[in-house]
Amino acid sequence: MAERHSTLGAIVRGLRDSNGWTLREMSERTGIPVSTLSKVEHNRLTLTYDKLQELSARLNIRMADLFADSDPAPANSPVTARRSIGTRENAFRVQTANYDYYYLCAELRRKRMIPNITTIRARSLGEFGALVRHAGEEFIYVVEGRITVHTEFYDPVTLEQGESIYIDSNMGHAYVAGPDCDEAVTLAVMSSAEDDLMDSLITMHGER
């Protein structure tokens, strides 16, 4: 894609326009109803991970391309003065059984930090499933409610609103809603020296 887009709706509309498709033609190619595509393009609806995966497979594009412009900066060109305002409204949302992820500042490519707001619904490790792990490090701050953090080498710890934790993401880990808390909200920042951290996170969410 040649243009930079900041929302899923703009990306879907750009894909459709670049191919000269009507909404009905794109619906036939993706298997997504016309009404759903229209709502997505007007930023009135997001897509679940399954639908995003189906969209990328049927259009033969990478999942990461649904976040922003995929053209990387030249290797010998330093990136300076980048800025992005992040809100829930312009975040890229990924829904899973355990979490709702709102990836902030998604239009910026090749980020070394991946910020997101996460709504945590899983209430126990049994409900969550196996611990997850990925490259890098991460910082989690509890915005609302309380969470219990399960890690591979430490006893579980419960964090209240206003508390935080910093961990090595290669260590198996899971975040669940804490005692007497139906749902919690956290602010997270994942970092890695690898350029494909976002792709790794998307794939991990899809497997959950």
Score class of each variant (00 low, 15 high):
Q53L: 13
S18E: 11
Y49N: 04
L125M: 02
N43G: 11
G126L: 02
L108M: 13
L108W: 01
T48N: 14
I114E: 05
R29N: 10
V79C: 13
L131Y: 09
W21K: 00
E28G: 04
R44P: 04
D100V: 02
A97Y: 12
D69S: 14
G129W: 11
F67G: 03
S70M: 10
N90Q: 12
S84H: 11
L59Q: 02
R112A: 11
R88L: 15
P74D: 11
I32F: 11
A64C: 09
Y49R: 08
P72A: 06
N76V: 03
Y102F: 15
S124F: 07
E107H: 08
S38C: 07
R123I: 01
D50K: 14
R82V: 14
N90W: 05
H42R: 15
P74Q: 13
D17P: 00
E89R: 12
L59N: 04
A91W: 09
Y103R: 02
E28K: 14
G126R: 12
N60I: 01
R62V: 08
A75I: 12
R112E: 08
D69E: 13
L108A: 10
D50L: 13
K51M: 13
W21N: 01
G126E: 10
E41D: 06
K39N: 04
G86C: 06
R44Y: 09
R62S: 14
A122N: 02
S18M: 04
R121V: 01
T119V: 13
L104I: 12
V34F: 03
M113C: 12
L47K: 05
N90D: 15
L47I: 10
L131R: 09
